[in-house]
Amino acid sequence: MADTVPTLYDWCGGTDALHRLTEVFYDRVLADPLLEPVFRHMSPDHRDHVARWLGEVFGGPTDYTDELGGYPAMLRHHIGVGITEEQRSRWAALIALSADDAGLPDDPEFRSAFVAYVEWGTRLARANSAPGATPPPDAPTPRWGWGEAPPYTG
């Protein structure tokens, strides 16, 4: 069965879907008074980089690791930022809303896996961004899957 279950990357629509997601999401972020100050100086490539990170995490191409430095590079973007719980929570809520607007699948199995990764990843980013945090510098890029409930294709 494992050979017939699509990755989260394939299920959501791949690169195009994740780029739509990051476009919609970062438009929301820049309009949000809590998050805009954190992201106001993001590079023009930031949206693409996040789409590539999510693609790799969800089982797609390893572009983020191969071309952008993988987990160590992602970690460097968070060290010392001091993300608050309120900012983390808002980020998670906005990306979930953005998934709807970007047309990502809305089946419960996909959304459960998507939200589980967002919760895990944002909580890790908050912890890694805390003053004095010393996270492991060379962990692998995570690969996220379906968890307990693969998609129903019957």
Rank of each mutant, 00 (worst) to 15 (best):
A2E: 14
A2V: 10
D3R: 09
V5R: 06
T7L: 01
L8K: 01
L8A: 02
L8Y: 00
Y9R: 05
D10H: 04
W11T: 02
C12M: 10
C12A: 06
C12H: 00
G14M: 06
D16I: 00
A17K: 02
A17T: 01
A17Y: 03
H19M: 15
R20N: 13
F25Q: 11
F25L: 09
F25M: 07
Y26H: 08
Y26C: 05
D27P: 02
D27W: 06
D27E: 11
D27I: 07
R28D: 04
V29N: 07
A31Y: 05
D32H: 15
P33N: 02
E36C: 14
P37F: 07
P37S: 11
V38M: 14
F39R: 08
H41E: 14
H46M: 05
H46E: 11
H49Q: 15
A51C: 06
A51S: 04
A51M: 03
R52L: 14
R52T: 13
W53N: 06
L54E: 03
L54H: 10
G55V: 10
E56T: 05
V57Q: 03
V57W: 11
F58R: 03
G59R: 08
G59I: 05
G60C: 01
T62R: 11
T62S: 11
D63C: 04
D63V: 14
Y64H: 13
T65Q: 06
G69N: 09
P72W: 00
P72L: 04
M74Q: 14
M74H: 13
L75N: 06
L75Y: 01
L75F: 12
H77V: 14
H77Y: 08
I79C: 03
V81Q: 06
V81T: 09
T84S: 11
T84N: 02
T84A: 02
E86M: 08
Q87P: 05
R90D: 05
R90C: 02
R90N: 01
A93N: 08
I95L: 04
A96W: 11
A96V: 09
A96F: 08
A96R: 07
L97C: 10
L97I: 07
A102R: 02
G103Y: 01
G103H: 00
L104H: 01
L104N: 00
P105D: 05
D106H: 12
P108E: 11
P108C: 02
E109W: 00
R111P: 09
S112R: 09
F114R: 07
V115P: 09
A116R: 12
Y117C: 02
V118M: 08
E119R: 14
E119W: 13
W120G: 08
T122V: 01
R123K: 13
L124Q: 13
L124H: 13
A125V: 05
A125E: 08
A130Q: 15
P131H: 11
G132I: 05
T134H: 13
T134E: 13
P135A: 09
P137Q: 12
D138V: 05
A139Q: 13
A139K: 10
A139E: 10
P142T: 07
R143V: 03
W144Y: 10
G145T: 08
G145P: 03
G145K: 09
E148G: 13
P150M: 14
P150H: 11
P151N: 00
P151D: 06
Y152R: 14
T153L: 12
T153I: 11
G154K: 15
G154C: 01
